Simulated scan of single mutants.
Amino acid sequence: MTTLPSALITGASSGIGATYAERFAQRGHDLVLVARDERRLDALAARLLKTHNVKIEVLRADLTQQSDLAAVEARLRDDPRIGVLINNAGMAQSGGFVQQGAQDIERLITLNVTALTRLAAAIAPRLVQAGAGAIVNIGSVVGLAPEFGMTVYGATKAFVLFLSQGLNLELSPKGIYVQAVLPAATRTEIWERAGIDVNTLSEVMDVNELVDAALVGYDRRELVTIPPLHVAERWDALDGARQGLLSDIRQAHAADRYRAQA
């Protein structure tokens, strides 16, 4: 009988992370749950243990703090049982760019970009050595849409998409599956923490529907999963246009429109 790998899930105390924990426990995976709120993690772990009879460990960590981040990195590097990383922890922003303070910007980037990247970097060498494993990075459709106005947040999520695509190119030949999941507005606590009333938003997806759709993409080994995208060909067209753009870039000379006119 094949033993399923353990899954380490960040931001696991509520919302998307807690739902991923529920679904992976249902599938029979042991779990390492990471978040700041140890009380809520303990309550989730107790419920999942009772319901699904899997091994669950709680690891309290604030991933914006270097010592806590280093502890989670060490666990990913050293624990051979962990074969799945759900890189879910993140935060949103409220207010426009000129209203963002330096500390707020740094904290947002530290969690959404630096911590996510370092955790992926911590587990990847071991997965490559094993020739198997998965890294799931939770991005956002905001990373495709500067028109939405969440400038710094959207930039961090654009990074998550690019990182995931690059990691796929590097790691998939070595047996590692990398998935970028791009939700739209989802009913979680991230909005309240950012000072945004989720009830003022239209077309908000239920978190269970979001994660279940993301897991369909996971099982199909999709590289980019966008649960609210109803016309899948839109993404194919966008990616095809991007690749066409690359084929037209000739680095030796500036385009004619940029050359000085006589």
Rank of each mutant, 00 (worst) to 15 (best):
E189S: 13
I105M: 12
P173C: 12
A120W: 01
L163F: 14
A121P: 03
R118S: 09
F162G: 14
Q93W: 07
S94L: 03
G133W: 10
R60F: 00
E192D: 09
V84P: 01
R60A: 14
Q100S: 11
Q99K: 14
P173V: 09
A158Q: 05
G149P: 02
A71I: 07
R126S: 07
D68N: 13
L161M: 01
V84S: 02
T151S: 15
A130G: 06
E147I: 04
L144T: 09
L85D: 07
L169A: 08
G175Q: 07
P125T: 09
G195H: 02
I109K: 01
L59E: 12
Q65T: 14
A132E: 09
S140H: 07
G149K: 01
I190D: 00
L171I: 11
A185F: 08
Q100Y: 05
E147Y: 00
D78W: 11
D79A: 09
D78K: 14
A134T: 13
I196L: 03
T117R: 12
I196D: 00
T110P: 03
V84E: 01
P173H: 05
S164Y: 06
I86F: 00
S172Y: 02
A184L: 02
R75G: 08
G95H: 08
I86N: 05
L111V: 13
P80E: 03
A115S: 13
I105H: 08
G95C: 10
Y153C: 02
G143S: 01
V160N: 11
R75Q: 11
I123Y: 12
Q65A: 15
W191S: 13
R81P: 03
Q179N: 05
A122T: 02
A134V: 12
G95A: 05
V98E: 01
I123V: 15
Q66P: 09
L167T: 09
S140A: 12
Q93Y: 00
A89F: 04
A130T: 02
G101S: 09
E106T: 14
L119C: 10
V160G: 12
Q93N: 09
Q103M: 05
D68K: 11
T114K: 15
Q100C: 13
A122P: 03
R75S: 10
N112K: 13
A102P: 02
G96M: 12
T186D: 06
T110D: 08
A184S: 15
Q129M: 07
R107I: 12
Y177A: 12
V141I: 15
R60P: 12
G131I: 11
R187E: 00
L76P: 04
R118G: 13
T110A: 14
A71P: 10
S140Q: 04
A70V: 09
A71C: 02
G195M: 02
G149C: 07
P183Y: 02
A102Y: 04
E170H: 13
V98S: 09
A70N: 03
F159N: 09
Q99E: 15
V141N: 03
L116I: 11
G139E: 10
T188A: 10
T156F: 00
T186P: 02
S164N: 06
G195V: 01
P173E: 07
L161D: 00
